[in-house]
Design a protein around this nucleic acid. Sequence first.
DNA 1: GTGGTCTAGACCACG
DNA 2: GTGGTCTAGACCACA
Lengths: 136, 136, 136, 136
Amino acid sequence: MGKSEVKYCVDFGGPIAVFVQIENQVQFAIASGKYKTGDTLPSVREMSSMLNVNPNTITKAYRDLEVMKILYTRRGVGVMVADRADKICRASILGMVKRHLRDAVAECIASGISAEELQKLVAGTIGAGCLPYQPD
Amino acid sequence: MGKSEVKYCVDFGGPIAVFVQIENQVQFAIASGKYKTGDTLPSVREMSSMLNVNPNTITKAYRDLEVMKILYTRRGVGVMVADRADKICRASILGMVKRHLRDAVAECIASGISAEELQKLVAGTIGAGCLPYQPD
Amino acid sequence: MGKSEVKYCVDFGGPIAVFVQIENQVQFAIASGKYKTGDTLPSVREMSSMLNVNPNTITKAYRDLEVMKILYTRRGVGVMVADRADKICRASILGMVKRHLRDAVAECIASGISAEELQKLVAGTIGAGCLPYQPD
Amino acid sequence: MGKSEVKYCVDFGGPIAVFVQIENQVQFAIASGKYKTGDTLPSVREMSSMLNVNPNTITKAYRDLEVMKILYTRRGVGVMVADRADKICRASILGMVKRHLRDAVAECIASGISAEELQKLVAGTIGAGCLPYQPD
DNA sequence: GTGGTCTAGACCACG
DNA sequence: GTGGTCTAGACCACA
């Protein structure tokens, strides 16, 4: 059936660059096993028209992930998931996510939020829904 | 003694725009009571030479804060702290900081970090040193 | 008894320069007969402390009105109302006021307000309270 | 034919700041339907060279309109007309224009112009030519 | 190509 | 002295 079960979406106008959003979503998809080593990603033009995004933006995202050894390109064939990409993605995501958490906590402390308050805020947030993408 | 007890500093080359850093520091200073309603901020030129930043950059920061009703300008006189600026600043800072925390926690959850692990990460971060500025 | 029955006020933060507001109020006062030829105006420092305005600003206003032959200065005595000042003021005010009316009407027309609508707006405004100063 | 049917012009040296003139003209263009929601405005550089105005000046005008929710920016793409911008513009223009009219009428009354005289003045002004820009 | 940021320096009105 | 405006030109991230 269909080409890919992975759903992509971008938030134009948000503070996060579109190419970063795409990179993160691809990484999340690989980390969670939606793509396996050797799988083919949506072609640049496919992804481009799907998301209404400039092809150059997709190219940039794929290129970045190639540099990170997460993807590789076979000319005339497409962009595929590299060997051990899942490990790389998990590590990359974990690093990013922990860094964001650390920064956010530091901000809270600097703003005068007490440790107890902070723990409550965190606990309160855990229940809410979360989108599988976002940031650097 | 000196003109102002508030200390400003900027990180050139960092990912955060200089004018944003200044806006945040002013907001923190007001939120923490270092400036009161009616106080005059360092003049554009004064701040400019203090931080080795172009006057236009200071002007931009001051204007943004004026739009947020935190500062107001008296022509030929200077820039002063508006009424209720402290409340606005506190709300602004708190909103930003909580939003960042929420996003970071959401990312962690989406990345498969467990609630216990998360709490440990937060607790471990609280001990680290934090600079009293730099958000968004 | 007191020195002057004329009430002055300034709107800092408004779009109209303080010295212009003072000039207009003096002109209105003279045009309406509150000051007669030969009357002494509040001294610069008196006016300055009354309005919490920089003395230079008062000086500038008086100087402008002197150029317009509305006031004249007697060194060591004060600033007094010149001969025929009332006529000059009435003409000056009338000119200014008509110019403003013309501009405002032109704007309305340019904004697509119909002639009937405009006449209604004008009629509706006539009832409201008006402050005896403002402009240019 | 050309890229845009909207004609822009600026009066250097006039009392109205160039960036304000541009803001007003854009607002008039949107209010009159010359731009629709989603339309792209002339790029900063395009507008800049069209009007012989510094790019920074255009940027300032566009940013102000962005704050007013009339425009929004897509990085690397351009500046476009926001949703409901037409309503905002019409309200903004109408408010400004009515305020000016109200102030002008108030001045007239305060200057001793009678209601009949005032109506005659207004009627007499309606005939004159008006440029479709220039407020505040 | 787009806009975002920053610098350097000018001139102005205002106080 | 203050801020407001504008110019000229640079470098950057993004699409």
